[in-house]
Amino acid sequence: MIEVEDVYFTYPNGVEALRGVSLTIKNGDFVAIMGENGAGKTTLVKHFNGLLKSASGSVLIDGVDTRKVSVATLARKVGFVFQNPDNQLFSETVEQEIAFALKNFGFKERVTKRRVTWALNLLGLAQYRKTSPFMLSGGERKRVALASVLAWNPKILILDEPTIGQDYHQKEKLRQFILQMKTQRKTTIIVTHDVEFVAECNPRVLLMREGRIVADGEAQNVLTNPEILIKASIVPPQIAQIFIQLSDLGLPKDVIDVYEAREKLLKVSERSK
């Protein structure tokens, strides 16, 4: 469980990135943090693994104050995948990259091997086992960074912009994986601009603006509210845009799923016949 209580944070250059954030994320929650560039999304999640420590207010991970433990200790529990994979990758081969943290955490050789293979397969990287991460495409490097964190099976997973450079199949795999996390009562937090991905997953959405949380609710409700979205520089998903435009025809506004869209449209069409 993550408990954030009235957190403020100012960078050394004077930018006030967080201005009083409070929230609770329970085990098994799937949360998408959205909002305009510079809203404080990445700053907030960096508090969850102790990379940043709040100036005032507190962040508790399973009851432990992040200011009282090291990042290394927290890392076992909280896995963090950065927006830009190049900030994270350094090994000579993909396999070594994924094994690195496992070795550091003291996993046995045999377990390390098994987990590396598992992560490679999960993210469709098996053919690159012996390849240098820097020979791979942007989307593939992103998946290597993800694999290296998933391998140690953290209880809380934080993904900063996980869908960048990923095609539809890869996104679908990611979605399935997150749902699996949820059934194991593990927490996934994504920071994302990808409204269509969020529309397909329908997680809890936290909308941020200027260092504060301005909306907190189900994707289906938050992403279909144009007044709130425009403040956070978010464009509604396409299906929502269609339904917002057609609301005068007696259609509901809160539709983001394409199959639900079909049902609602057929209903209205039957009625008007």
Partner: peptide, 13 residues
């Protein structure tokens, strides 16, 4: 080459 991948949706638009 994916010139707006880090931008918010309105910024990208």
């Amino acid at each position: 080459d994916e010139p707006t991948s880090f931008l918010d949706p309105l910024g990208a638009k």
